[in-house]
Design a protein around this nucleic acid. Structure first.
Lengths: 233, 233
DNA sequence: GTCAAATTAGACACTGTTGTCTAAAACGTC
DNA sequence: GACGTTTTAGACAACAGTGTCTAATTTGAC
C-alpha cells in the first residue's frame, strides 16, 4: 500500500533512508508508546503500527521488548543530556544585566530541557522503571543531573569571583537555582499542562529575582524593587 | 492453613477484624503492587497473594481491576492530604527563632509528606496514570497541593504582617518555599534513596536560610552569618 | 449449635501479547 | 535487469492475565 519512501516521512526533519530510517522510526514510536502506556502496557504491535513498520521488523532490530526498551531509554537520555549541556553553555558570562541574562538562561533551561517531550518522557521513565533498571538510570543521573549541578556551580563560582554574587556553597546554590526555576513547573508539567511563553518568562523572572535577593551582592540591592515592578503579572 | 486472625496482622497498627480488615489488607497490597508494577503490570493474583486473600475475595470487594485501582488511589490521596494539612497546622505562629522554627517545620514537611511511602507512591502514580485519569488527579491537585500553597501563603502573610518577613507575593513565596525545601529531595527520592535525619535537617536549614535571605526582613540580617555557621556539613 | 454471609481453592473460557516462522514482495546495489 | 538483503503480512504456539463460576469451608453473630 504505502511505499517506504512515504513511511520515513514521519515527523522527522531529514528523512533518512533505508535500514537506519527504520531504526529511528521504531525508536521514536517506541518512546511514544512506552511513555504513554508504561513498559508492561506497551505492546509491540502498537509500536510497530505507530512506526509504520511490520512487527517482524521490530524484532529484527531489537530481539525482544526488553532490548527495545533499554535502547529507547538510552536514546532519549543521550538526547536530553546533549540539549542540557548545550543549554548550559549559554550561561551568561558577563555580569551586567545579570537579572535579565539569568532570566533568559532560566527560560532556555525550562524550554529546552524541562518542558520538552523528551524531558517529560525521561522524568516519567525514571520514576516508573527506575527501580527495575537501577544501573541504567544511575549512570544517567551521574552523567546528567549531577554533572549539571557541578557545571552550574562552577559557573556561579565565576560570577562570585567577579564580585556580583555572594555565595558560600556553590553546589547548594546551583541546586537551589534549579529548584527555584522549576518551582512552577512541577505541578503543571506533571499534568501535561503547557506554560505559555509569557508564563515561562514570568516564572523564570520570579525564580531569578528570589535567587538574586538571596545570593546577589549587597551593593545590588536596588534590584529588588526594580524587578518587582517587572513581575507585575 | 492460616486462620484469618493471623492474616490481618500485616503491618498495621490495630488489626481490624472481619470484612473491613480484608478491605484494608487488599487496599494496602494493591497499593504496593500497583506502585511497583504500574497499572498494566500489576496482576490481581499477585495482589491477592500479597494481601493473603483469595483472588475471588478481591473481586467480591472491587468488581474489577479498574475499580480497585481508583479505590487505591483515592485511599492514598486521602491519607496524604490528611497528613499534609495536619503538618501544615504545625506552622510556627511566633516569630522569635524564625530560622529554627521554619527549619523544624520544613523537616516535618519532608518527613511526613515528601519522603513517605505514600508520598512516593502518589508522585509515581500521578506521573504514571495522570493522563489516563485526568479527573481523578485534577480533583486531588485542587484539594491537595493547590490548597496547600494557598494555606502556606496565608501563613506567610501572617508572618509578613508581624513584620518579620518582606514578601510582596505570598503565593509565589509559598511555592518557592516548597521548591527550596524539596530541592535536595527530587533526585534522591526519585531513585528510592533515603535521606538520614541529619541530611534532612541540613537540607531544610539550607532551604530556610536561602528563603529568609530572600524574604527575611532587612533588620534580621545577622541571621545569614549565624546560620551559615550551623550548616557546616 | 445454628445459620447466613463471607471466604476459599480450583477450574474455566476468553482475550491479548510475546516471540517464531513462513513465503512473498520490495529494496538497493552492482 | 539480476541478486542478496530487508521488509512484509499472516499464521502460529505458548503463555499470562482477567473475570466468572462452583462447591466446600470458615467466619461471626445470635
Amino acid at each position: 500500500m504505502k511505499s517506504p519512501s512515504d513511511i520515513i516521512i514521519k515527523s522527522d526533519d531529514h528523512p533518512k533512508r533505508g535500514q537506519y530510517a527504520k531504526r529511528v522510526s521504531i525508536l521514536d514510536a517506541a518512546a511514544e508508546v512506552f511513555c504513554r502506556e508504561g513498559f508492561s502496557g506497551a505492546c509491540i504491535d502498537e509500536i510497530a503500527a505507530e512506526a509504520c513498520v511490520s512487527r517482524q521488523t521490530v524484532y529484527n532490530h531489537y530481539h525482544e521488548k526488553e532490548t527495545l526498551f533499554t535502547a529507547v531509554v538510552e536514546d532519549v537520555m543521550k538526547r536530553v543530556n546533549a540539549v542540557l549541556f548545550s543549554t548550559l553553555s549559554t550561561f551568561p558570562d558577563t555580569s551586567d544585566n545579570l537579572q535579565e541574562d539569568l532570566t533568559a538562561f532560566a527560560v532556555r533551561l525550562t524550554k529546552n530541557c524541562t518542558c520538552t517531550h523528551d524531558g517529560k518522557f525521561l522524568r516519567k521513565l525514571v520514576l516508573q522503571e527506575g527501580d527495575r533498571y537501577p544501573h541504567l538510570f544511575e549512570v544517567w543521573r551521574q552523567q546528567g543531573p549531577c554533572k549539571t549541578t557541578k557545571a552550574l556551580a562552577a559557573l556561579f563560582a565565576r560570577l562570585n569571583h567577579q564580585g556580583v554574587l555572594d555565595i558560600d556553597d556553590f553546589d547548594l546554590a546551583a541546586r537551589q537555582f534549579l529548584a527555584l526555576v522549576n518551582a512552577d513547573m512541577q505541578m503543571v508539567v506533571l499534568f501535561g499542562g503547557v506554560l505559555s511563553d509569557e508564563e515561562l518568562q514570568v516564572s523564570a523572572q520570579n525564580a531569578v529575582r528570589t535567587f538574586l535577593r538571596a545570593y546577589g551582592h549587597v551593593t545590588e540591592k536596588e534590584q529588588g524593587s526594580r524587578i518587582s515592578a517587572l513581575s507585575g503579572v
